[in-house]
Nucleic acid binder design. Structure first.
Lengths: 213, 213
DNA sequence: GTCTATAGGAAGATAGAC
DNA sequence: GTCTATCTTCCTATAGAC
């Protein structure tokens, strides 16, 4: 086979591992399967990575970075505030629908990391970056307009990240796209109601939007 | 060891498997580990279950039923509408905080089911039952009072189920309980705003709560 | 740096005595 | 129904030639 510097081989093996894991699941993706997917022999794998764990670490950091880039692209500011929220969800949603296996993989890797002693920080980093992506968006929106938030930025960002995560997993399990237009509209409206132009920032106290009685 | 009818042995092994899987993760829980946890020999395992897959199927259905019972208990109606929502989340949340491993396991089992050919229906059943638990609550609330919903019941139930799921996973990964009071208040207020006393039901059209501009 | 060959171990499942 | 002992397979990782 063609010779190649170690760094590039590592990238090649990492990408192959992501493809194989997205297709077959983490549990079934052995080192042999990864080497075969990359078109190299098993020994090349162990020449580039000390262990399977070392490769998985590379996989998690790589896919987290991919994912965050995706979210940040999807969530760029648009003409109006509601457009931004709606178009952002739409772009993200299109990616979920067209690449369900990749998203599935992110959930599997989260749990792999949480169960593997010494890897917990990778799972935390993953979810912290989701929150940061949303925080970044909110800050952009605040800079462009004169926005006031009804809830603190950290709360809103975390809420958005958790909700996106939950909705995605729910879709991956249940499918049924038709049911989603309603849910997405509800969510979009809620977000818009939490981010308003021209009002005082919320004090860190009781929540807004109380229902009558 | 003491003799025992097959049905009871199956229950014993299923419970042992749940304990071991919650503690060590699904991937690391071998048939040997389950037999040891139950205090029986490996052959007893295969006497009661044709294969490891058969046991996992029993584990998934058992834990799903446990979980749904928990949610339905947490979500029983209270004095006022907002109390119901708030107390329900509180009860659910206390369980998550005190039994994180069990909740972790439910996520692992979802993915196991989705990746195992022929087991997809177990994952679907799991999430359908979450939605049904919320649907049940909403119907109870509607019966007791003269409630009108701003969104269709199916949409609201699915939204609640997905959001609970996302928030739980986010907590399992990031911990940080302090950050959660804000998020929960926001969510509680949102739900209350979607379920109002004395108003017309929402037509299946554009969402409420539009933000200015 | 890449290969073939293999060590070494752990997994799921079975055989057959009691 | 339960046990001990074992089969078979597949895994991660290494050895050593090229």
């Amino acid at each position: 086979m063609a010779r190649m510097p170690s760094a590039e081989r590592r990238r090649q093996l990492t990408e192959a591992a992501i493809r194989a894991m997205a297709r077959d699941g983490v549990a079934k993706t052995t080192t042999r399967a990864i080497a075969a997917e990359a078109g190299v022999s098993l020994s090349v794998f162990h020449y580039c990575f000390d262990s399977k764990q070392a490769l998985v670490e590379s996989v998690i950091t790589t896919i987290t970075d991919h994912y965050v880039t995706l979210v940040k692209e999807a969530l760029r500011p648009r003409a109006t505030l509601e457009d931004t929220v709606r178009a952002g969800f739409q772009a993200y949603w299109d990616h979920v629908r067209t690449h369900p296996d990749e998203h599935m993989l992110t959930y599997e890797l989260t749990q792999y990391a949480l169960r593997q002693p010494g890897f917990e920080h990778l799972a935390r980093r993953q979810h912290e970056m989701y929150g940061e992506a949303y925080t970044h968006l909110i800050e952009q929106l605040r800079a462009g307009r004169d926005l006031r938030l009804r809830v603190p930025v950290t709360v809103l960002a975390r809420y958005l990240a958790a909700m996106t995560d939950g909705l995605t997993l729910n879709y991956l399990v249940l499918g049924d796209e038709a049911a989603w237009t309603g849910v997405l509209d509800t969510v979009t409206a809620h977000i818009a109601s939490l981010v308003m132009a021209d009002g005082p920032d919320a004090a860190p106290g009781p929540p807004p939007d109380r229902a009558p009685g």
